[in-house]
Design a protein around this nucleic acid. Structure first.
Length: 224
DNA sequence: CCCTGATTCGC
DNA sequence: GCGAATCAGG
């Protein structure tokens, strides 16, 4: 298999969407997980919480070399190129999400932030099970975001139309003529609208238990 | 064991 | 450029 534009595009979207290399390889077919990772790196896509990537800068000038035998560690910058979504907006819960009025600036809240435990695959913030905090920001809006997207999105939202305030949820498959993005107003602090946050941030089950039906952003797997 | 992503290096 | 082999943490 070769890396056609379509395949690269899909790889990119899925990678950025937080899919694991295995899932991507799976979806693309004909390539191994390693191939996907290798390609992602060559594309400059990397940067994503890796299970293996401490990086502690310390001062101890002496005796850090525990295993000099192998390759020297590359000086990886700690700087996270991935600007996680706004730290605020603690809860993607679909139940209540007040769209901030009209202020273009996000995070009007002064609410206390939840403890951030880690960053999930997609760059979103993840909380440990024990960290669930009932109290969230209050945010009591009277107006809920419409469950249904505006009846007419006359113009499809293209890649070029994306900005920080509109939902980037992909509709359809990349490369296809009618591929576009959701385009709804985002759930403040997240890259997606309320509805899609609900889909994007579901807890992922272990591989063996995954079921095809539920989420899957990329328009769903294409039947091959 | 399984999973993950990162890196290396022969092709 | 590609990806199997390997590494290393969870």
């Amino acid at each position: 298999m070769s890396w056609t534009d379509e395949r690269i595009e899909k790889l990119t979207k899925m990678w950025e969407g937080g899919a694991t290399a295995s899932q991507i390889a799976d979806e693309l077919g004909g390539v191994s997980r390693n191939a996907v990772i290798g390609k992602a790196h060559r594309l400059g896509l990397k940067a994503r919480p890796s299970p293996v990537k401490p990086n502690d800068k310390d001062s101890a000038p002496a005796a850090p070399a525990a295993k000099p035998a192998k390759a020297e560690a590359a000086p990886r910058a700690a700087a996270p190129p991935r600007p996680a979504p706004a730290p605020a907006a603690p809860r993607p819960a679909a139940t209540a999400a007040p769209a901030a009025p009209t202020t273009s600036t996000a995070a009007p809240s002064g609410a206390p932030q939840p403890r951030i435990v880690s960053v999930g695959p997609g760059g979103f913030l993840r909380q440990g099970p024990g960290d669930q905090q009932a109290p969230i920001p209050p945010a009591p809006p009277r107006r809920l975001v419409p469950a249904k997207p505006s009846p007419d999105i006359a113009e499809k939202t293209s890649l070029l139309d994306l900005n920080d305030r509109i939902c980037r949820w992909p509709m359809g498959h990349p490369g296809e003529p009618d591929f576009h993005f959701c385009g709804e107003a985002v759930n403040p602090g997240f890259p997606y609208c309320v509805e899609h946050c609900g889909r994007a941030y579901q807890a992922q089950l272990p591989r063996g238990h995954r079921r095809p039906p539920p989420p899957l952003p990329f328009g769903g797997p294409r039947v091959r």
